[in-house]
């Protein structure tokens, strides 16, 4: 995986089509799951080797917060649970 990142010297997160990704801390994750009364499995998914999150060194069941531009609400927050590729 480290090799893959090396091959492309361009930082993916700088691309205009890639919104801001952040990894939630354990406590943030807990409050989020509690708020919506769900488990990580029920969230939309993101692959563990997704180029946009590779720099976090993610683990399965982590939750990634995505703040993306929206055509209708200017900006919106989205969550994805990390799954194995």
């Amino acid at each position: 995986m480290a090799k893959e990142a090396k091959l492309s010297k361009f930082d993916v997160s700088k691309h205009t089509l890639v919104p801001k990704h952040t990894k939630l801390s354990e406590s943030e994750k807990k409050t989020l799951l509690k708020k919506y009364n769900i488990t990580v499995k029920e969230l939309p998914k993101i692959l563990i080797n997704d180029p946009a999150i590779i720099r976090f060194d993610p683990k399965v069941n982590d939750v990634i917060k995505i703040e993306r531009g929206s055509h209708t609400a200017r900006s919106s927050v989205f969550y994805r649970g990390v799954v194995n590729a």
Binding site: F10, V12, T16, V18, H21, A52
Partner: peptide, 28 residues
Amino acid sequence: MLNLDYVDPTRTTSNDIREMGKLLGVEA
């Protein structure tokens, strides 16, 4: 293309959805 020096890699896009997904992730 993203690795060429005269190309602006932050705005260069492809219309191939699979390619975009592979290189820049699901969100892209």
